[in-house]
Design a protein around this nucleic acid. Structure first.
Length: 805
DNA sequence: AGCACGCCGACT
DNA sequence: GTCGGCGTGCTC
């Protein structure tokens, strides 16, 4: 066996296949499938992943692998296979599938440079170049380009003065610490010590300190503080050869300065007991089953996860727990670290690239048994998985919106089958798809209908804001909400206010001509941000200062409509000047650790009101919250998305669940302009079952999931006519390929007709069983070269889409 | 993606 | 008559 099949890191249609390479003799037996390698590819070098070994190849003139990038495989057999499955099921490139499984730090960095190989030839170069290479032997391609030296240097390449070199580098930087330890056996050292000069008092002290535990190594800092001395003393000992330096890899542990109070399994309620026992028997018998753990907010789902994992660990197996990104609050981490301590690795986007890499390596080296993380943690390189848990199963963040457009739930079930282990999907408001599958016994339904300690669900009031307006209340707070807000302030209890729109106001309109300020690059209105006094586009990031007069008619009567978190914050400052408010949205939490800091401030009672967007809907579990206010329940309801009702119901139910989780009874006030809508009414009653029934009827009528599957084809281009014609061609092609039962809608304008100066059209396919769908879609992608062809038309396919925009 | 090869317009 | 435009095709 000396040929390796490699998938190269060139994500295009034409290169999306295996390339064969010879394994150099010195690496035979060492290069194995799942390793990253550097291979020559055309004139350059690229990173690749070895997917299999074979004795020979049908291709002649094979090139050799340049070098391996790993000492042991980073993708195991299962993950390599999963990559193929992902490619097939999301229509992505193989390399993209593998890259999705690895931490970002392992993505290759490419550098092209010119290296001086013949110093003689330098004399023929212009003076400024000669100066540059006086004390240098290379220049990066980029640098040479910027200095306008490329053409000169290229002629120098042709006569052999320079050589073009392609470098492939690992982004990953292992964090290295220098440690110091004794380099001789103790008795020998004692002899050496006697030869010391009498003045070398400090050196002797250091040695005596080290001799107490001769095997241990210390960092410079540890040594100098322990011995009350300076670095020079240690350096001197190294020089004398008594101490040796050793480089040790250390992990960047984002949680190292935190201590987690050890927790122990809590006694389970009868309901919990009943729910956990089928999971435990699955674990015991090693059979794969998917459970839908449907439990109302505060019913103790997490304890079930913890105890199921406990059992898995006792069997010597591993566990993966997925949580939605935004709820990776310290609370969740605390509960897992508290129970399983150092056996837990945490993976989420708040970590730096290096930190993520280190956490990932802990998994790879089998130093942890449990991974708690966001979507991509589903690819944790465990080899003996005993359970996979997806908390808040209905969350849309489990679907990746770039290639590979996978859903973590599907990957979880794939891995569950492979490892013969249970997959547990937990939610208080399951997605319709999952609940429907549970009804059909594809998933096994486990129900927790009671809150822990029989705490009652919060009282929910729905306030009709049209009525408030009629009564003359034009503020954003209804009388009821405002009264309760004041009441909580007096009692010293905390309130959560929820509004899913950041910024100050949602659009700016001229009152004379009615024109709305729009983004010049996208067909979307600009949002006013008060703090910076700017108008921002939330899609392309365009920013502009607020014009003094209307750009259309020159009128000065410009008004701000709609309400964002910033405006609410300002309003609160006016109405309740003594209230301490913390605002949480993308704008206040973008800095690393800000999310966590704001939450802990709130937890410590440093604020009375927490005001925020989606991100505060989950994971908050503070005893002092007794009031939750939803300022405008309808903002989501009118989005052009067949899941709008479902999302609204879920959000309102989740937000309401934040109140009164502990001793104090909780209250919820939901403000809306459409109180009669079933998703708002039923969320008020916390009535999932009725909502499910009603929404299923709607889905059946609209021929949407779970009754039909969806495939969404996006087309975008700078030229409107081009987009329409390409989309038209695609739509009619699909019509020739699919059966009568398939519903093919299009070409239709995307709900956001233009983003970043590109027009957007789409074709939506609703189907039940179409064996020719995937091949047909592949053909389209083939033709339009997956997302980008020479004419710059972007075509992308999303199977089972979540984002309809 | 890069890069080479290859065939048609404005220039020393 | 050449330099260079980017269209097409290949990378084990």
């Amino acid at each position: 066996m000396q040929v390796a099949a490699v998938i190269v890191d060139v994500p295009t249609m034409q290169t999306d296949k295996e390339f064969d390479y010879l394994i150099p003799d010195e690496w035979v037996g060492k290069i194995v499938p799942g390793m990253r390698v550097i291979v020559p590819f055309g004139p350059r070098k690229v990173q690749g992943v070895v997917v299999r070994l074979k004795p020979t190849s049908t291709v002649k003139n094979l090139k050799k692998i340049s070098e391996p990038m790993d000492l042991s495989p980073v993708l195991n057999k299962e993950l390599l296979q999963l990559g193929e499955w992902l490619t097939e099921h999301t229509l992505c490139f193989k390399i993209s599938a593998y890259q999705a499984m690895l931490p970002a730090a392992m993505k290759a960095k490419y550098e092209k440079k010119l290296v001086l190989v013949n110093r003689e030839g330098i004399n023929q170069l212009p003076v400024e170049l000669q100066q540059w290479f006086n004390d240098r032997t290379e220049i990066s391609w980029k640098e040479a380009d910027q200095r306008n030296w490329l053409s000169t240097l290229q002629t120098a390449v042709s006569i052999g003065t320079f050589e073009v070199v392609y470098d492939v580098k690992d982004k990953a930087r292992k964090k290295i610490e220098k440690h110091y330890l004794l380099s001789h056996p103790t008795d020998e050292l004692k002899r050496i010590m006697d030869t010391f000069s009498k003045h070398a008092k400090k050196q002797r002290e250091v040695l005596e300190f080290l001799l107490k535990s001769p095997e241990t190594s210390w960092t410079m800092k540890e040594l100098t503080t322990a011995c009350q001395t300076s670095t020079s003393v240690v350096q001197e000992l190294v020089k004398k050869g008594i101490l040796q330096e050793k480089e040790v890899e250390v992990y960047r542990d984002p949680y190292q300065h935190r201590s987690f109070e050890k927790t122990y399994p809590l006694p389970l309620t009868d309901q919990q007991q009943k729910a956990i026992s089928p999971i435990l028997s699955s674990i015991e018998n090693g059979d794969h089953r998917t459970y839908l753990l449907y439990g109302v907010t505060g019913s103790g789902k997490t304890e079930i996860y913890l105890q199921a994992i406990q059992r898995v660990l006792e069997q010597g197996k591993e566990a993966i727990v997925l949580v939605p990104e935004i709820s990776l609050t310290p609370q969740m981490v605390h509960r897992f670290k508290g129970r399983f301590g150092d056996d837990v690795a945490v993976l989420h986007s708040g970590l730096s690239i290096g930190e993520k890499y280190d956490e990932w390596r802990k998994v790879q080296r089998k130093e942890v048994k449990v991974v708690v993380g966001a979507r991509s943690a589903i690819f944790a390189p465990f080899e003996n998985i005993g359970i996979i848990i997806i908390d808040e199963e209905h969350e849309t963040s489990y679907k990746q919106e770039e290639n590979p457009r996978y859903h973590a739930r599907d990957v979880a079930i794939y891995r569950g089958k492979f490892h013969g282990c249970p997959v547990v999907l937990g939610s208080a408001t399951p997605s319709l798809e999952s609940f429907a599958r549970a009804q059909k016994n594809v998933y096994h339904l486990l129900t927790l209908s009671k809150r822990m300690n029989d705490r009652s669900l919060p009282d929910v009031s729905i306030v009709d804001m049209r009525e408030e307006l009629r009564k003359g209340n034009r503020s954003m707070f209804s009388t009821l909400l405002f009264e309760k807000l004041q009441d909580r302030l007096e009692k010293g209890q905390q309130t959560v206010l929820f509004l899913n729109r950041r910024g100050y106001s949602s659009f700016v309109m001229c009152r004379d001509c009615g024109s709305v300020m729009q983004c010049p690059h996208c067909d979307i209105s600009l949002t006013y941000h008060r703090v910076t006094n700017q108008l921002k586009c939330h899609y392309c990031g365009f920013e502009t200062t607020v014009p003094g007069v209307c750009t259309e008619c020159g009128s000065e009567h410009i008004r701000y409509f709609g309400t964002g978190t910033q405006k609410v914050e300002e309003e609160l400052g006016k109405l309740l000047p003594h209230a301490r408010v913390i605002r949480m949205d993308v704008d206040t939490t973008s800095r690393k650790g800000a999310h966590e800091r704001l939450l802990s401030q709130f937890q410590e009672g440093k604020a009375d009101i927490l005001l925020g967007t989606q991100m505060i809907a989950k994971g908050l579990d503070f005893p002092n919250i007794t009031l939750v206010g939803v300022l405008s329940a309808d903002t989501m309801l009118h989005l052009p998305d067949f899941r709008a009702s479902e999302k609204t119901f879920q959000l309102l139910t989740q937000v309401s669940g934040r109140a009164g989780r502990h001793e104090l009874q909780g209250e919820v006030v939901i403000q809306t302009y459409t109180p009669e809508h079933y998703s708002i009414e039923l969320a008020g009653e916390q009535n999932y079952n009725d909502f499910y029934q009603k929404e299923m009827v709607m889905r059946k009528m609209g021929r949407y999931p779970p009754f039909y599957y969806l495939a969404l084809i996006h087309v975008s281009h700078e030229d409107l006519m081009k987009v329409i014609s390409v989309c038209e061609k695609i739509t009619s092609y699909m019509k020739t390929q699919l059966s009568e039962e398939a519903i093919i809608l299009g070409p239709t304008v995307s709900p956001i007709p233009r983003i970043n100066d590109r027009y957007r059209y789409q074709c939506l396919i609703k189907y039940k069983r179409e064996p020719r769908l995937i091949p047909a879609l592949k053909k389209i992608l083939d033709f339009y070269v997956k997302e980008r062809n020479s004419e710059n038309v972007y075509v992308s396919v999303d199977l089972h889409p979540y984002m309809m925009m």
